[in-house]
């Protein structure tokens, strides 16, 4: 009992090492999670960008927050997938019959999601810098951006955990992420909401992605963030807590 508690951190560390290896050894994970959002960024900046009026002189600056959210939304689909595979194969049973904390394998997946999404976010930001992204944000603002992105990742990760634990098929495990990947498109991530028809606009302005995008954009531009950051935090925390409670209930029921 005691060893399970005292070694919790190192056990989760072992689990993290395991799934990070999985990620590094599967090319399609890396491609989807970093190259696809980068391709979107190139497409929007160099193909559509000229036709989009955002009121800013640098469209990469405008676009980057949304691209980061898309990357996270597609990244967490793999968390659901990896969790599903672990539940299917016997490896979770082996872990659960060992003297380690019952939740360590699950936290391993959650932490992996956080770390891998952080890596892809850094890669995407570096590419954006090459494409002309510039920020006047100070250290504190960058920390705030990192914090919001981490919370957003965690919130979506716990949704992914629910999907991974309750899916019946491999495809089902990842399917939940499609609407999430789509959400940034119906937000102020790519075009200002003012250009949208009223119904779409009402949706866009009141869904979580818009406030998150606006908060990050203001922070990166060194402008006052206003209310957006609180709305964004409330969304992220709210989703995080509800999804976490649900996921833990399913986990404790499924993996007795």
């Amino acid at each position: 009992m005691d060893t399970a508690r005292t070694h919790f951190i190192s056990d989760v560390g072992v689990m993290l090492g395991r799934s990070m290896r999985h990620i590094l050894r599967s090319m399609d994970t890396i491609i989807t999670v970093t190259i696809m959002p980068i391709a979107f960024m190139l497409l929007f900046v160099y193909v559509f960008g000229g036709a989009i009026q955002t009121g800013t002189d640098n469209y990469v600056n405008y676009l980057l927050p949304g691209i980061l959210l898309i990357a996270i939304a597609s990244g967490i689909a793999y968390t659901a997938y990896r969790l599903f595979i672990d539940m299917q194969r016997g490896i979770f049973e082996r872990f659960h019959s060992m003297p380690i904390a019952h939740s360590a394998p699950l936290w391993g997946h959650v932490l992996t999601s956080l770390v891998s999404n952080a890596i892809s976010a850094v890669v995407i930001i570096l590419v954006a810098l090459l494409m002309g992204f510039r920020s006047s944000a100070g250290v504190l603002s960058w920390l705030a951006v990192a914090g919001i992105l981490a919370l957003f990742t965690l919130a979506l990760t716990w949704i992914a955990v629910i999907a991974g634990l309750s899916a019946k098929t491999v495809d089902g495990a990842g399917a939940f992420s499609y609407p999430l990947i789509f959400l940034p498109f119906i937000s102020s991530a790519f075009v200002p909401t003012e250009s949208m028809p009223p119904v779409v606009r009402a949706f866009a302005e009141n869904q979580p992605v818009t406030s998150i995008v606006e908060a990050i954009r203001s922070l990166l531009a060194g402008q006052p963030v206003g209310n957006d950051i609180w709305v964004a935090l409330a969304w992220c925390l709210g989703i995080l807590i509800v999804a976490y409670l649900f996921a833990m209930r399913i986990y404790n029921r499924k993996a007795a």
Partner: peptide, 11 residues
Amino acid sequence: LTGQFAAVDEI
């Protein structure tokens, strides 16, 4: 435990 179905990490 060595379960009925091999509990090894394939990757």
